[in-house]
Structure formats: structure tokens, C-alpha cells
Amino acid sequence: MQKDDLIAKNPLRIFAQDGAGKEITQRMGLVMARAGLGKTAILVQIALDNILRGRQVLHVSVGASLEKTKVWYDDILQDIAEGAKLERPQEIRDAVMRNRLIMTFKEAEFTRPKLEERLNDLVYQNVLRPACVVVDGFDFAGAGREAVADIRELMTVMDLQFWFSAVIHREDNRVSAAGVPAPCHEVDDLFDTVMLVNPVTDSPSLSLDVIKDATGCVKPGKALTLDPSTYLVKKA
């Protein structure tokens, strides 16, 4: 398989265009799951899908080390290369290296002004011009609505896609009217797309359920599946 086939066959392509075939440039996306169910893996695959489509990605890791984040990419790329029997895997690895930058922050230090400053630095220094920012480890429970609204505003100002991950706690049953669980139940209106990773009853696989999509790319209720051993996204 070659790079172009990989792009065409990627299940996450459903988020690239709206119903009328128009490319989506701005989006606040959210992937929610309980701990250990593959949120980071999904964010990495969203990042890879963007990179393969020629868009640059900033991966923000809040509270995790650079090395750990890099290993996620290496492992997922390895799984993709093996699964798709890629002819020139190094070409894809090089593309990822060139078009991705990882930034790590301590939890208390990740704020919109800081992120905006860093994004401007990247563009000004001609290091990277990201079209997509994935944010892993953002503390929704402690951040408050204003912080998320600030980032949504930044999305508009800089014409970006943002994808966040959030951890759901089993003991917290609060859910928004749209079905978005805590800790994001009170900020769900600030997100265009929300996906939920759910275990499938009587099956080892995991389901990636789209519970909200305001961009018109996907109808809510649509589900993808996750390979439980590799966390690679597949068509349902």
C-alpha cells in the first residue's frame, strides 16, 4: 500500500469534509473515554491523518513527557505500517517528523495566552504553521468554562482545528442534555464534535461513538471501532 491509499482508506477522513464536500478548517473536537481506553491513540491518529493530508500539526501534551508522546507516534506508525503493508514506511515517518511538533506543558502552565504566544512564535520563526492542534491531558475538571471558551476563540482567530482528550470517571454520572459526560458536560456547547470511546458488550473491541457533530461531516450516532490491541481506528 502507498501513502495515498492510506489517506483514502483512513476512517478518520469522515471528519475532513462536510456533507457538501467542503473542507473543514475550524473545529473544536473532543475525544472522551475512561482512563486507558485509547484517547491518546485516537488523538495521534487524528494528527497523523492531518499530516498525511499535508497539514501541519502541533501536539500539545499537558503533564506528559516529550519522549512518551513521541513513543505514541512511533508505535502507532509502526502498527499502521505493518497493518497496511506500507511500501515505504520511512517516507511516512519523515513526513511526520517534518510536519509535527510536540510541546509539553505542566498542568498549571497551559493557558490560551501561552499557547497563542507559542503558536505565533512557530509561525514567525517559520518552524511550523499548524492547521491542527491536538491537546492531550487538558484538565477540564479544574479549568472552567472560560478557559475552554478562550481556546475556542483562538481557534477562530488562528483558523485552526483543535482536538482535545478528556477522561471520564466511572463514579461521576453527570451528563449534558446532548449526552456529553462529565467533566465536559457544562462546556459541550463549545465543541463542534464529541466522540466517546465505549467498550462493546460481549466483545473485546471498543466503539468510537460520535455523539455530537455540528460541522455536518458525520451524523450523530455513527460509530467507528477501535482495535483493542493497537487502538487503531477502523470502520464499524
Partner: peptide, 28 residues
């Protein structure tokens, strides 16, 4: 941070990432 990244970028460098902690940053 911006200046360090810029200087490495000008040298055909590929920035892998940055780690910020307090007022200190590491660019890899």
C-alpha cells in the same frame, strides 16, 4: 524559546518538540 527554535530551524533542524517548565524551556 522562539529564538532558539528559529536558530535551529535555520540550520536545517527538525524541531521534535519543546518542554516547558516554569521559566525554563528545553527545545529538542
Amino acid at each position: 524559546q522562539g529564538a532558539i527554535m528559529g536558530s535551529l530551524n535555520q540550520r536545517r533542524g527538525m524541531i521534535i518538540g519543546t518542554s516547558e517548565e516554569g521559566n525554563y524551556t528545553v527545545v529538542d
